[in-house]
Computed example of a mutant assay.
Amino acid sequence: MNLISKFFSGCVLTIALLSFSNEAKAHCEIPCGIYGDSTRIVLMYEHIATIEKSMKEIVELSAKGDVDYNQMVRWVVNKEEHATKIQDIASQYFMYQRIKVKDPSDTEAYAQYIKQLTLMHKIQVYAMKTKQGTDLKNIRLLREALHDFEHAYFGGH
């Protein structure tokens, strides 16, 4: 095999591996019927805990006289990434695929639909607010909204 063939074979392999790794990060938008709703809720709670830990570390580092800016940036980036992951699960998984559009004439089903959408919107907004600062109030509000959504989604209240 000559050098050019080896190069192109390596590129093809790299592209194939990268495309498979992207698929593992997000659930598809085709009707595959394979869903892990409770797993997604658990993941969202884990992301909230990670954001909370990041906020506390940022506050602690900020209070020091000699701030380690490299470490500070790492915690800020971590906080942002996990907030985005929550937003992605809320939109890509639940809003696009799992919360089904209901006919307004079915008042009970429609009320449940509106409740779930409202709670997903709160989750999106509170996740955004965690990106904007380190106020732990937003963690509490985010956790409460997720808790309420969990009960509205699984329990039907």
Rank of each mutant, 00 (worst) to 15 (best):
M1L: 09
M1S: 06
N2P: 05
L3I: 06
I4V: 14
S5G: 12
S5T: 14
S5L: 11
G10D: 02
G10Q: 12
C11T: 02
C11F: 07
V12E: 09
A16H: 08
L18G: 14
L18I: 12
E23C: 10
A24R: 07
A26N: 11
A26Q: 11
H27P: 07
H27K: 12
C28R: 11
E29D: 14
I30E: 13
C32P: 09
I34S: 14
G36Q: 04
G36A: 04
S38T: 14
V42R: 07
M44C: 00
M44H: 00
M44K: 01
Y45F: 13
E46P: 02
I48P: 13
I48R: 11
I48T: 06
I51K: 03
I51H: 02
K56P: 10
E57F: 06
A63Q: 13
G65A: 06
G65I: 04
D66N: 14
Q71K: 15
M72K: 12
M72N: 04
W75F: 13
V77P: 05
V77M: 11
V77I: 11
N78E: 15
K79L: 09
K79N: 12
A83F: 02
K85Y: 12
Q87I: 02
Q87N: 06
A90S: 15
S91T: 12
S91N: 13
F94V: 04
M95F: 07
Q97I: 10
Q97P: 07
R98L: 07
K100S: 10
K100W: 06
V101I: 06
K102P: 04
D103V: 07
D103E: 05
D103P: 01
P104C: 04
P104F: 04
S105E: 14
D106M: 03
T107I: 09
A109D: 11
Y110M: 01
Q112D: 09
K115N: 08
Q116H: 01
M120G: 01
M120H: 03
H121K: 11
K122C: 02
K122P: 06
V125H: 02
Y126H: 15
M128D: 11
T130F: 08
K131V: 08
G133Y: 00
L136R: 04
K137R: 06
N138T: 09
N138K: 07
L142S: 02
L142P: 06
R143W: 14
R143H: 15
E144K: 08
E144V: 01
E144H: 03
A145E: 01
L146G: 03
F149I: 01
A152E: 03
A152M: 04
F154R: 06
G156N: 07
